[in-house]
Simulated scan of single mutants.
Amino acid sequence: MTAYTKKQKLIDALTERIESGEYPPGSKLPSGTELCAEFTVSRQVVRSAVDWLKARGLVDGAPGAGVFVRERASP
């Protein structure tokens, strides 16, 4: 599996977990180490996927604290 495919698979899984409420607004995402182990990907793939989620406004990073799901705007 290519790095792109692994990244897209991780993005899809995290997005689904956020949208389904498994990771509700304000909750902390699993650590990079945990995501690496669960999805069998490198830290670089995890960082790239998280950067994608940040760019789309789904999560925010707090230096030293982790990555948290953003509150969603009401439609």
Score class of each variant (00 low, 15 high):
residue 47 R to L: 06
residue 5 T to R: 14
residue 2 T to W: 13
residue 19 E to A: 08
residue 5 T to W: 15
residue 1 M to N: 09
residue 6 K to P: 00
residue 18 I to P: 04
residue 33 T to R: 07
residue 40 T to M: 07
residue 50 V to M: 12
residue 11 I to D: 08
residue 73 A to M: 11
residue 55 A to D: 15
residue 38 E to N: 01
residue 19 E to G: 03
residue 66 G to Y: 04
residue 73 A to N: 11
residue 75 P to N: 12
residue 58 L to E: 14
residue 71 E to N: 14
residue 11 I to R: 11
residue 11 I to C: 14
residue 63 P to M: 07
residue 21 G to W: 04
residue 61 G to M: 12
residue 16 E to S: 11
residue 39 F to K: 03
residue 57 G to F: 15
residue 55 A to T: 05
residue 40 T to Q: 11
residue 3 A to D: 13
residue 63 P to C: 10
residue 6 K to H: 08
residue 74 S to F: 14
residue 69 V to I: 10
residue 62 A to L: 15
residue 63 P to K: 14
residue 39 F to H: 11
residue 13 A to F: 07
residue 17 R to P: 00
residue 44 Q to W: 01
residue 36 C to T: 01
residue 66 G to S: 01
residue 15 T to G: 03
residue 37 A to V: 04
residue 12 D to E: 08
residue 57 G to R: 11
residue 37 A to W: 00
residue 62 A to G: 05
residue 75 P to Y: 13
residue 46 V to F: 07
residue 5 T to A: 09
residue 56 R to S: 11
residue 49 A to S: 10
residue 13 A to D: 12
residue 64 G to H: 03
residue 48 S to H: 04
residue 32 G to N: 08
residue 22 E to Y: 14
residue 25 P to N: 09
residue 69 V to W: 05
residue 30 P to N: 01
residue 47 R to C: 09
residue 39 F to D: 02
residue 45 V to P: 01
residue 27 S to H: 00
residue 74 S to D: 14
residue 1 M to D: 07
residue 20 S to G: 06
residue 72 R to D: 06
residue 51 D to W: 07
